[in-house]
Design a binder for these strands. Structure first.
Length: 544
DNA sequence: GTAGGGTTAG
């Protein structure tokens, strides 16, 4: 299986011999320029290669591919399919859907290549309704019996559609290949039906490495590391995914040591770790606050030298150091980076803010703006946190206005939460209360509890009661039974009771404490809420 | 000449 993939790869390289040197968008633009001056711009096969290189071979060049594609007066079906494929695998899969709509408008007939790309986009977006519509079109055009199309359908339905539909497609197949078996197995495993998944796995007449990986992943996802390990020991061959699955599994269940052992074993077995391996390990260290292990992982990354995914890894390293409490190391990595993206800045600014370095946070944010890097909503959470901890009420207001007026970002619940915290800490309780009431989105329980905490700190029982009433009036599913309990305590002015309830909630959450934080005892609930997502990993989904 | 199933994250 792996060998087959490699062959495919080298064929592709041979076929694209002229385009082989073209590994970045700058070279591609040069070739495009050459094509324009030399008349190749109207040569269909040259155009096909250009579109293909842009949409498939170079990552992050989909915008350019879209621009190019618009200029082609009559693209052929191959070009349409190439664009669909590129969009489906890009960070903006919804573009595939609009491309298909255009295809229909221009009466270009889809073929058996078109639909797998389209379904892939629906699956990635979890667009169930759209996926079902696509299924309808597949039936209409008579492609349901095509093995590739049918397997993609099984995958769509078992991923986000109706598992019984996936089952029916599978059962109704005249011949089921290894992909059909593993797609359905993965579907059952994903929904927690490990029994059915295992039954399919045992029954399948053919198994390849992916089949084994699917089953191991199933056990790992439901935390059954024992059975995962059993299969891992039995598997006839292993690839980087097999190892990564096990490592991620140990990380998920908090066995940082076992994850590291696996990593050592992996290297001994001669398997080269990839960026997924390293991201897993870094997040293990960040979660457990294991600075010494994190440093080892960091030096491994430097030794191995990951080319294209360097920025993502460096961002994760910054995040790891910050979460382990070593701001100095985080800053050193940040300062040494040759290229930075928004996430690099966010990881560093967030790290500083999380540890209460208010002034440094604002300074770095100012530097970011000076360098014309566009901050996003995550950046502003960090900036507002810094204002809050630094007691910078006026600046906080300014930045809050800045995010909407200068960057056109609609404030989200986290930004509002920061503002309430900012006002509450400064003792401006009535202002905080009015601020919540004027919010353009529904305040959540955390926002009200932040105000409640401030009322306690400043000894304002009267407003605390009001905040509690609001908490109580919230929908039960948002705040849970805890609100009721909290209300009972707080309405009697028993702040210790409120604290107990909050602690109960913290303890029941899966989030672990950060390794070392200067503000640990300081509105922990809000801080966990604000920093729960890894800023360095969010970018993937933010780039459109 | 283009395609399908598995790992990170949410």
């Amino acid at each position: 299986m792996i060998r087959k993939k490699k062959d495919k790869c080298s064929n592709l390289q041979q076929r694209l011999s002229i385009w082989e040197r073209c590994s970045n968008i700058r070279t591609l633009k040069q070739i495009h320029g050459f094509m324009m001056v030399s008349g190749f711009n109207s040569n269909p096969s040259a155009l096909r290669e250009l579109i293909f290189t842009c949409a498939i071979s170079i990552s992050g060049a989909m915008d350019y591919a879209n621009q190019l594609f618009k200029q082609i007066t009559e693209p052929d079906r191959f070009m349409w399919n190439t664009m669909l494929r590129g969009s489906a695998q890009s960070s903006n899969p919804s573009n595939a859907i609009s491309l298909y709509t255009q295809m229909e408008e221009r009466h270009v007939r889809p073929d058996n290549f078109t639909f797998p790309f389209l379904l892939k986009a629906c699956t990635k977006l979890s667009w169930v309704k759209m996926g079902n519509e696509v299924h309808g079109k597949i039936v209409k055009f008579g492609f349901e019996s095509n093995t590739f199309v049918r397997n993609t359908l099984i995958n769509f339905h078992s991923n986000c559609g109706d598992l019984t539909v996936a089952r029916a497609l599978f059962d109704g197949s005249p011949k089921r290949d290894v992909v059909a078996w593993s797609a359905l197995t993965a579907g059952y495993a994903r929904r927690g039906d490990l029994g059915m998944a295992r039954q399919l796995f045992d029954e399948s007449p053919i198994k390849d490495l992916v089949s084994w990986n699917v089953m191991i992943t199933g056990y790992v996802k439901c935390g059954d590391m024992e059975n995962a390990r059993k299969l891992f020991d039995e598997v006839p061959e292993r690839d980087v995914v097999t190892w990564n699955t096990m490592i991620a599994g140990y990380v998920r269940c908090g066995s940082c040591d076992k994850a590291m052992e696996m990593f050592e074993e992996m290297r001994c077995a001669g398997e080269r770790p990839d960026e997924v391996t390293m991201l897993s390990l870094l997040s293990a260290c960040a979660d457990s606050g294991a600075l010494d292990v994190g440093q080892k992982v960091h030096s491994s990354i430097s030794e191995m030298g990951f080319g294209s995914s360097k920025i993502v890894l460096e961002n994760a390293v910054i995040d790891m150091y910050a979460k382990c409490g070593s701001i100095e190391n985080a800053l050193e990595v940040f300062r040494r980076m040759r290229e930075k993206d928004v996430s690099s800045w966010n990881s560093m600014i967030g790290g500083l803010a999380f540890h209460g370095h208010a002034e440094e946070t604002i300074n770095l944010f100012t530097e970011m703006r000076r360098e014309k890097i566009r901050p996003n909503e995550i950046t502003f959470v960090a900036v507002l946190v810094a204002c809050s901890h630094g007691g910078m009420v006026e600046e906080g207001h300014q930045y809050f206005n800045l995010l909407r007026n200068e960057y056109g970002i609609e404030p989200n619940i986290k930004h509002y939460g920061c503002m309430v915290d900012l006002l509450g800490r400064a003792g401006l309780l009535n202002e905080a209360f009015r601020f919540i009431e004027a919010m353009e989105i529904e305040p959540n329980a955390i926002v009200w509890r932040t105000l409640l905490g401030a009322c306690r700190t400043h000894g304002n029982v009267e407003l605390g009661k009001q905040a509690n009433e609001r908490l109580l009036s919230m929908r039960r599913d948002q705040s849970g039974d805890y609100v009721l309990l909290s209300n009972i305590y707080a309405s009697m002015g028993e702040w210790d009771g409120v604290e107990k309830v909050r602690k109960l909630m913290d303890d029941s959450g899966v989030k672990k404490d950060p390794g070392c934080s200067l503000i640990e005892a300081d509105n922990k609930e809000l801080m966990n809420f604000l920093f729960e997502s890894k800023p360095n990993l969010r970018l993937k989904y933010n780039v459109i």
